[in-house]
Amino acid sequence: MDTVRITVKIKRFDPEADARPYWAEYPVEARPTDRVLDVLNHIKWEVDGSLSYRKSCAHGICGSDAMLIDGVNRLACKLLVRDVGEIIRVEPIRGLQVIKDLIVDMEPFFDSYKAVLPYFINDDPEPARERLQSPEDREIFDATTKCILCAACTTSCPVFWTNERYIGPAAIVNAHRFIFDSRDQGTAQRFAGALGEANGLWRCRTAYNCTEACPRDIPVTRAIQEVKREMLWRSA
């Protein structure tokens, strides 16, 4: 297949060598069907081995390679060259500390996730077989089970940019996954914890960036609204 000539501009930073981040430019040949991740690999493997980023699955299910591409949070492995212009600008996701090039410190993100008690809570004795759940009840929280914890939503959120202690959309999405699961009994506990606190749910200003950023097409803003409504309803 014919290749096209593109220029990749990458915001780079090596903590052991650079005082501050800088833009590096790489002119490369790429096929229109290449993933942006393939292009980064090409640069790393043929041009500059020190270019650093995380990757694993290469098809959008492990959540390793969220980055800011042409101003929008995307997974590099889920975006093709034919869908971007001749010049691609790649930067680390925002709001988390940059460690090296496109690698950021994910710990604060995972701390917020853990704070919403993102696990199944049900203290009833376990039945011999499965707990029953109707397909309709299962459908209610289907979308939020898709989250791959890539942080594209949280790091696109203007509230998070100004307040890194805001738990962020990803954490709320994962709370939603349990709150709307007919088998789960932990809702009160979750609302009494991080979700209901000052940096919890109510910081959301429905900017919708998160919904646009989600590579799994989760209707993030709607999920957050549903959790808010549930909390209001419960406290009424």
Binding site: Y119, F120, N122, E126, A128, R129, E130, R131, L132, Q133, S134, P135, R138, F141, D142, T145, R177, F178, D181, R183, D184
Partner: peptide
Amino acid sequence: VYELEHMGLPFSRTPEGRI
């Protein structure tokens, strides 16, 4: 598999509500 379900794994369901 039942144990995974007891841990909350959201299996798709049959019309009867089983895995």
